[in-house]
Design a protein around this nucleic acid. Structure first.
Lengths: 215, 215
DNA sequence: ATTAACTTACTGTCGAGAAAGTAAGCTTTG
DNA sequence: CAAAGCTTACTTTCTCGACAGTAAGTTAAT
């Protein structure tokens, strides 16, 4: 019943290589044009075949799209020894490192940004992918905060929830601004600052905003 | 030679009303399907005419799209007395209020989220709209920080830059997560927390992240 | 000789925009 | 004030171009 994500019974190694080549091309095209505007023919052209050839490998555009997303995620943790995002407070450091890595690969950042936003539209094929993704990521950040807060004697589950979502949110939001104008935003440094500020906001809550307003 | 953005020499008041009706329908459709997938026919149907009727009013799909964005922005400050975003530290309070307002209008939030991300793609008609928008908003937030920091005796222009981008970023990022799963994220409360944390991060910088990591 | 990896050729669908027509309203002039 | 002439607000209909997916044939490796 497993839908053979990849590398299952693919006899020819040449085939597997071609598939990855197509996936990489798809990342580029979907990144440049979005999944709606990027066409199978665009992708096919980049790997030197016809759009029917691409369909031969992936069955449909939708299946290709989902494989692209899975591939991207997997390549995200590929360099890590454990093949999985770190647990505990080290996660925050990992997120910062990710931001630094992302500043060097605008292509991948762009697919992700474009597709995640596209996915909120009606019945988008990648919708549940992103829903699940954020659910999982938030849970991991919440867990990291759990450990950290135990160390520091803070227990405000509401705040932890807000902070967890916020950390993922700043990273995404900064990516958008950076893609629009890379010279205006320092993706890595700004992410680092924001993550730090949010973590500190949980551990050592400061004054409310109104405090600073004159009137 | 001026392309009469709106309400210029539009003799008939009925006409102006129909235009706004179309704009509102377009917000709904573009929000639900994105600007690429939402069709003129969809929009036309919602106001009871044909797609050609819509073109009669707006000339092309692209022009309609740009007018939708302008309309949305203008309606954002419509309630404010001065018809402009507040200056100085009051801006932070305004942003929090905006987040609370947004939690009640998912439709508008969705158009904005979908279109802003779509706009980073090649030669998207709304690209410069969003580029300009973020440039302006960042400048306003930087200015607000300027005043605030003068009060509190902080002067780190780099940090201020990062914080300004980050505040806009969290707001956007939280919207995305909230659109994907409204029950998982408290848009308003999380935004308030994050903005607060970032402002405090500028005024009272805390320890770096590494501090908390065990190893 | 069979299967994988394609290609070519075709189908169906859909969407933007142009063209041309129509019905109603305004405006000008005597 | 009324008819001619013009403008606005559409509709119907058509064209043109994309694009996803399918089917059937071709080549080459095992």
């Amino acid at each position: 019943m497993v839908t053979t994500t990849s590398s299952a019974v693919k006899s020819r190694p040449e085939t597997e290589r071609k598939r990855t080549e197509i996936l990489k091309a798809a990342i580029e095209i979907f990144g440049a044009k979005g999944s709606t505007n990027g066409t199978l023919a665009d992708i096919a052209e980049q790997v030197g075949m016809t759009h029917a050839g691409v369909l031969h490998h992936f069955g449909s555009k939708q299946k290709l799209l989902l494989e692209v997303l899975a591939y991207r995620d997997q390549s995200d943790v590929a360099e890590l020894a454990e093949q999985h995002i770190p647990n505990g407070p080290a996660l925050f450091a990992h997120l910062v490192r990710t931001a630094f890595a992302n500043a060097l690969r605008p292509g991948i950042v762009q697919v992700y940004t474009v597709l995640s936003a596209e996915s909120v539209t009606d019945r988008h094929p990648a919708r549940s992918f992103f829903e699940d993704r954020y659910t999982v990521l938030r849970r991991e950040v919440v867990a990291a905060f759990g450990e950290l807060c135990a160390q520091e004697g803070v227990t405000d589950t509401d705040t932890i929830g807000h902070a967890s979502a916020s950390i993922l949110a700043v990273m995404d939001g900064l990516q958008l601004q950076w893609l629009l104008d890379p010279s205006a935003v320092e993706l890595a440094e700004a992410s680092e600052f924001a993550i730090q500020a949010i973590v500190n906001g949980v551990l050592r809550p400061g004054p409310r905003i109104g405090t600073y307003v004159a009137d």
